[in-house]
């Protein structure tokens, strides 16, 4: 089942409007194609609307527009995503605590950038952490973002620390100096929805403060993930909206590793954590499962890019 090349496909997402969840991060773009194809382009001051340079796929936007209203329904199609959210924090914590710097990086006053924030499940939770100074969360879908903003109004704890911007990453002003970047740049359940993952990741790079982390999540492209995410989750159990996942867009962990450590410079200390959803028990960390299905991946931007 070799990955397909070519641009990503508008997948069937929009077909089943009611269902789709982005929550499950299952879908990742096939690595090989977009990764190999793209040059390590410096983030262009892009034409946000120009699809050639935008990582945003219009089909994806309409897909998530359709999901907007049910985003915060804990029994709705995003339930599995809600359930996964705490593990994101566990993973980020494990990345940050793995660092051996002397002196150690600060534990508090952290700045987050959440790219493709959707309804704000991760962004809100990151904001509530007492170690967080601020969270900037962006998403290209205005409808989804209005859901996020409306929901954030319900929690007075979020007011002063959380900023939502309706923008693709290409339009977000790059920090003037690297130290103004973010401690954590998160790209959860997103990379499988963008058109050119390698270029997209390059655009995220300048936002990561030296010493900070880029964390993302996706799904390994294996027969098992095809079976579990496409056949079982979507077609049989229907716990994930049909058409949410395009197996061909999934990315394997070693492909991400190769991208950051071999095809790009300035990154180090890659970490990953495989997770498995067990109906009845929730998400569980299962070591080794990153080779098979859903996983988190984190990589640290080194202080002096070589």
């Amino acid at each position: 089942m070799p990955p397909r090349t070519g641009a990503l496909v508008p997948r069937q997402l929009c077909r089943n409007t009611a269902v789709s969840l982005r929550p499950i991060r299952l879908v990742a773009p096939t690595s090989s194609r977009s990764f190999s194809a793209s040059a390590p382009a410096p983030a262009p001051k892009s034409h946000p609307t120009d699809s050639t340079f935008s990582s945003v796929s219009p089909d994806e936007v309409s897909h998530f527009n359709a999901l907007a209203s049910s985003w915060w329904d804990p029994q709705g199609p995003s339930r599995i995503l809600h359930l996964m959210n705490p593990l994101r924090h566990d993973f980020i914590r494990s990345c940050r605590s793995s660092v051996l710097d002397d002196p150690p990086p600060p534990l508090t006053g952290l700045k987050y950038l959440d790219i493709g924030c959707g309804g704000g499940i991760f962004a809100e939770s990151a904001t509530r952490l007492p170690t967080t100074a601020s969270v900037t969360a962006i998403d290209p879908s205005s409808k989804v973002l209005s859901v996020a903003k409306a929901h954030a109004r319900r929690d007075p704890a979020l007011r002063s620390k959380l900023t939502y911007l309706n923008t693709p990453i290409e339009q977000l002003p790059v920090p003037d100096i690297p130290q103004d970047g973010y401690d954590v740049v998160s790209v959860f359940e997103v990379i499988e929805h963008v058109s050119h993952p390698a270029q997209f990741l390059d655009r995220c790079t300048p936002f990561v403060k030296p010493g900070g982390w880029l964390v993302l999540s996706t799904i390994a492209r294996t027969w098992m993930s095809w079976l579990t995410t496409n056949v079982i989750a979507e077609d049989l159990l229907r716990i994930v909206p049909r058409g949410t996942h395009d197996w061909r867009k999934y990315i394997n962990e070693e492909e991400l590793r190769g991208h950051f450590l071999q095809k790009r410079t300035g990154w180090a200390e890659p970490r990953c954590m495989g997770v498995v959803y067990v109906p009845g028990l929730g998400w569980k960390e299962v070591s080794g499962s990153e080779k098979v299905g859903n996983y988190f991946f984190g990589v640290r931007r080194i202080a002096e890019p070589t």
């Binding site: 959210n85 705490p86 924090h89 566990d90 809100e124 939770s125 990151a126 904001t127 509530r128 952490l129 929690d155």
Partner: peptide, 8 residues
């Protein structure tokens, strides 16, 4: 658990 994971 909710507090340590930023949940409401």
């Amino acid at each position: 658990y909710a507090v340590s994971h930023g949940q409401d």
